[in-house]
């Protein structure tokens, strides 16, 4: 019994949670005591969004094994639906802090609905073809949003998709990172816990079975389309929620920003972090988002250095020797090594 509890406390998933808790504890304590530099403060929300995006895309790419290149479009759908509904709700609910969670759920649902509509025909395709279709769908959604013109006179609200949404003007921009951070932390934890739970459940097993061998999965009665669609919709839901958070953390949002470049950026995080690894996605999101900021002092050479570093990380990641080294540094390995040492010491005595 005691052994079981210990095992649970030091399982792979709990350790990931500890890491995230520790990171947030350090940064929020620094932030709330006013010891965090402005550069890092500004990054907190965007990195949190990227963690949610990467972890949710990992569900599609890592767990389901389908390449999706349109993840940014779900974020954009969520962002605009959530932010606009937040503005429209401002007469009913005056506080933006209460409207934000409602907007997040609405944005998530809108993104999930778009995910459903795109996924239903697209998920009949496999591999490269699915990637192409999701890429195209992402661009279609981007262009559709750019062409939306919307005026709500009762709320004195005007939205022009080509220009973008000025969140500052409509009072939904939360400037103080300290006020927005709790929402980000909750969203990140909900996402991580859901993703970890799903990998150890009936649904997760069915999803991984489809990834490992679709024909065999069908032969044991798994409804492949259903599970593929559920994964796609769930990932879109979280991307949409991240989008709403992102919208509230920036004074201005334009649809043109959420193009395939951003989708690729998220995919790079997932691939470098390791397919199917939640912890890897989190760490990669932090490093890859922090890198461009850290490299700011090299000004003109920033993106060049960033690319070179990406290549170095890729080479290291593909190197078996580096993988061994990484494996030896993992916590369970260290614990087992310490135990073995104890044993040999005792035996020697």
């Amino acid at each position: 019994m005691k052994n079981n509890v210990l095992k649970k406390l030091f399982s792979k998933n709990s350790i990931t949670i500890y890491i995230v808790v520790a990171i947030y504890a350090i940064f929020s304590s620094l932030l709330y005591t006013d010891n965090l530099s402005r550069q890092l403060t500004n990054m907190l929300i965007s990195v949190s969004c990227y963690i949610v995006l990467a972890v949710s895309l990992n569900l599609v790419v890592g767990f389901l094994g389908e390449l999706s290149l349109g993840h940014a479009c779900f974020m954009s759908v969520g962002l605009f639906t959530g932010c606009i509904s937040s503005v429209l709700m401002s007469n009913v609910i005056p506080s933006v802090y209460i409207r934000l969670p409602i907007a997040m759920i609405l944005g998530g649902l809108a993104a999930a609905a778009v995910g459903f509509v795109i996924g239903l025909p697209a998920l009949r395709l496999k591999g490269d073809y699915l990637a192409i279709v999701t890429l195209a769908c992402g661009e279609i959604v981007k262009n559709a949003i750019t062409n939306i013109n919307m005026t709500v006179e009762s709320a004195d609200f005007e939205f022009n998709g080509a220009i973008g949404l000025n969140t500052n003007k409509y009072g939904i921009y939360i400037k103080d990172v300290g006020e927005l951070l709790p929402y980000a932390i909750v969203l990140v934890f909900v996402t991580i816990i859901v993703m970890m739970n799903i990998s150890k459940s009936k649904a997760g097993r069915c999803i991984m079975a489809i990834r490992d061998n679709r024909i065999a999965a069908e032969s044991i009665g798994i409804n492949v389309t259903y599970y593929k669609l559920i994964v796609f919709v769930l990932a879109a839901f979280f991307a949409g929620m991240a989008g709403v958070l992102y919208g509230h953390g920036n004074s201005f949002a334009a649809a043109s920003k959420f193009d395939y470049n951003m989708s690729i950026e998220i995919l790079v995080i997932v691939v470098l972090g390791g397919m199917g690894s939640v912890r890897g996605s989190i760490i990669a999101a932090i490093i890859l988002r922090a890198l461009p900021e850290m490299l700011r002092e090299f000004s003109d050479y920033r993106m060049l250095l960033y690319s070179v570093l990406l290549i170095v990380i890729m080479i290291l990641n593909a190197n078996p020797k580096f993988a061994d080294l990484k494996g030896n540094l993992s916590i369970p390995k260290i614990i087992s090594r310490l135990k073995n040492k104890d044993k040999t010491v005792k035996e020697a005595k």
Partner: peptide, 8 residues
């Protein structure tokens, strides 16, 4: 030709 879920 064996079709197991080999990574599980």
């Amino acid at each position: 030709n064996i079709r197991l879920f080999s990574k599980m």
